[in-house]
């Protein structure tokens, strides 16, 4: 169990983590989702006692990380796959960690086998690919057979096989009853493995809910209409809006109308009744990725320059989704 209470971390002017409160429970995979710079890594570093919170509490099984009697047996973490001396062999790296954490040395070949690095165990890490380093980092996290596993963007740099392998591993760890906390900046990635999602933007909590609940809340279907007579159609559609079924119309980026709360048949009939000519009419599923970005980007202080401002209101539907 990982606990954050009003957790805050400031770096000068930047508030990287802003009064975050959540619990991460055992037996399920909790995805930690947020765009780059949302504060995911910082939150994990606070939970693991690497950084000191500006205020608030970060606890592991109810106590600060540094107070755990056998931290390496209670928590295993992968924060930065590159964080290994390039001149050391994979085996020596793990051996050092095992010795420091009071973990039996027989675990070293076991975890090397688990991550598929047995063959290269005696090679120096400097020659490893990013994917191999990522596997070595995961081996380090599993070394103490911990009840809590924290992985920061574990699939970065992995090929498709590697990504699938991580998904399988994460699932298995949770099914064994462990607490699994995995960060990602991609909805599409966590969607495939997470049972629960903690979503952050700009250091603040955006959502903390089971995945199906979030999908239901965030999937917004809409109808896209292209018409030379937008005004009469908008007026007619708005007249159909009622308190139990609100219909909203928004202008799209290219002059089309985006209609929420009505199906395509209804929109077509309304256009006919309003005498508005219709050139295009189709249903669009706004992707979950889009919904998540829309929700978090309000919180992001330094949004990427490309592709955000124009599409915040819509336009990026299924065709742009992954």
């Amino acid at each position: 169990m990982l606990t954050a209470r009003e957790l805050t971390k400031r770096y000068g002017e930047t508030t990287a983590v802003d009064t975050l409160t959540f619990d991460i429970h055992p037996g399920r995979v909790t995805g930690f989702l947020g765009p780059n710079g949302a504060g995911k890594s910082t939150t994990m570093r606070l939970l693991l006692g690497l950084d000191r919170p500006t205020s608030g509490k970060a606890l592991v099984n109810g106590r600060p990380y540094a107070d755990l009697p056998w931290p390496a047996r209670e928590v295993g973490a992968l924060l930065d796959a590159a964080a290994v001396h390039p001149g050391r062999s994979a085996r020596a790296h793990l051996l050092a960690l095992a010795r420091g954490g009071g973990i039996p040395q027989r675990r070293v070949p076991e975890v090397l086998d688990t991550v598929g690095l047995t063959e290269v165990a005696r090679r120096r890490v400097g020659g490893f690919s990013l994917g191999m380093r990522q596997r070595l980092g995961i081996a380090g996290a599993l070394l103490g057979d911990p009840g809590i596993v924290v992985l920061d963007e574990p699939v970065n740099g992995l090929d498709l096989d590697g990504v699938r392998w991580v998904r399988g591993l994460v699932r298995k760890l949770a099914d064994e009853g462990r607490t699994v906390f995995v960060s990602s900046h991609l909805m599409s990635e966590v969607q495939l493995v997470a049972d629960q999602l903690v979503v952050v933007g700009g250091g603040r909590l955006v959502a903390d809910a089971p995945l199906p609940e979030l999908i239901a809340a965030w999937s917004r279907t809409r109808v896209v209409v292209r018409t030379p007579d937008p005004d009469p159609l908008t007026a007619c559609l708005q007249r159909r809006s009622g308190p139990e079924r609100p219909v909203t119309v928004e202008p799209g980026a290219d002059g089309e109308l985006l209609v929420y709360g009505a199906d395509p048949e209804e929109v077509g009939d309304t256009a006919h009744a309003a005498g508005a000519r219709v050139h295009t009419l189709y249903r669009e599923e706004a992707s979950l990725e889009r919904a998540y970005l829309d929700l978090t980007e309000a919180e992001v202080r330094y949004p990427a320059a490309s592709g955000k401002s124009g599409t915040a209101q819509g336009g990026a539907g299924q065709r742009e989704g992954r």
């Binding site: 056998w70 047996r73 051996l95 050092a96 420091g100 057979d145």
Partner: peptide
Amino acid sequence: PHTDTRPAAPAAGRALLQVLAMEWTKLSSV
């Protein structure tokens, strides 16, 4: 998993020996 097992912390001397072993492994493996 070790979620709920909470063995007592190692004695300070033993803990220091563990860390000495770790640091020696790191120094000597480079």
